[in-house]
Amino acid sequence: MSRLFRAYRLAAGGFFAYKAAALLVNALTFPRLRPRPTPAGPRVSLLVPARDEAHNLPRTLPGLLAQGAHEVLVLDDGSTDGTAQVARQLGVRVLPGRPLPGDWHGKPWACQQLARAATGDVLIFTDADVFWHPGALGAVLHELERSRADLLSVYPRQHNVTPGERLLTPLVDAVLLTLLPAPLLRLPHASAAAANGQLMAFRREAYQRVGGHALVRAELLEDVTFAARLKARGGRLALALGGPGVGVRMYRSYPESAAGFGKNAAAFHGRSRALLVASAAWHLAAYTLPWLLPARLPGVTWLRAAGLLERPAVNLVTGRRTPADLAEGLLGPVTPLLALPVYLRALRPRVSWKGRDYAQSGAE
């Protein structure tokens, strides 16, 4: 057995051991929302930035309106598909978005406008594809109070319908739960931060203290960056899993997933081309290479098993427990190959999203 193989086996084994340990810690400690009645106070503004979301709003807005919030506002961010008309027909107050300033990105600008119009003591930004089931708002407010957080970000339970959207979309949960043990969030350092822009609940005072979304006005990965910068300024951060109360259907196909993840991958890797390439190569080595090596080599069978079991274990923790959810583990060996278009998109100097073109700062 060569030294190279021994080094590889040790590195890959350590990688999977760390991820398994992080997942176990999170299974025991990561907060999960439980549906609760909406309390009488504080006043809550539910804020929805929407750009070409006419297909999602009829499915998601009724649940949002039923939460009993002080107000629900939708900002129509230059849609061309009738988003504003659909939202008004559903009984929501619609704000027309102002033109995008040259030094802002689309979603932060939409959120900043919503915050200016909102009158609540708690500002909850939620994407148009997020499902709010009965008791969800009560659960969010309870966790916000229990954690004493200035920002509570929730990871909704994934609803993946077609085979194509199962290929990459569930990796959102895997990245969070196998790489960031929840207790690390208590550390004061800003690097110990994560967030999900699909649902971010702020105490208004804390949001205004840091300047609102102007804090991340030109960021593609605005959610994680906001959490880190708020924490760096003394803010308190908390995360939770959506459980049965909050769900999402992010993407509806494999190409849509690859495009969506590719938009954020460069920022997630510190806008470093070298780190992007190294990440792609390492995941091929950890998940795919064991299936190309002879099974008789010591440790190869264990590496194969680790790659197969990771995604089902993550799905169990998040509450995704149907046979189809658990069968996603079979994708383990090919997931790095399926993710290659994400890396290739992230390596480009510019990226397009929802009809807007952005420079990937630091990647040019």
Rank of each mutant, 00 (worst) to 15 (best):
R3M: 12
R6V: 05
A11F: 09
A21H: 10
L28T: 02
R32F: 08
A40Y: 04
V44R: 06
R51S: 09
H55S: 15
G82A: 03
Q85C: 10
R93M: 05
V94F: 04
V94T: 02
P101N: 04
H105P: 12
T119Y: 00
T126A: 11
T126P: 00
D127S: 06
F131K: 02
W132N: 01
Q158D: 14
V161R: 15
E165V: 05
L168R: 05
T169M: 12
T169D: 14
L179N: 15
P183V: 06
R186P: 07
R186D: 12
L187D: 00
L199T: 07
M200R: 01
F202Y: 15
R203Q: 11
R204S: 07
E205A: 15
V210W: 02
G212F: 05
H213Q: 13
H213N: 13
L215A: 05
G242R: 11
G245Y: 00
G247T: 08
P255A: 12
S257K: 00
G260C: 04
A267V: 01
F268T: 08
H269A: 10
A278W: 09
L289Q: 08
W291C: 10
L292N: 09
A313W: 07
R320F: 11
L331I: 07
G332I: 02
G332N: 03
A339C: 11
A339D: 09
L347E: 06
R348E: 11
S352V: 14
W353K: 14
Y358C: 11
A359Q: 13
A363N: 15
E364F: 13
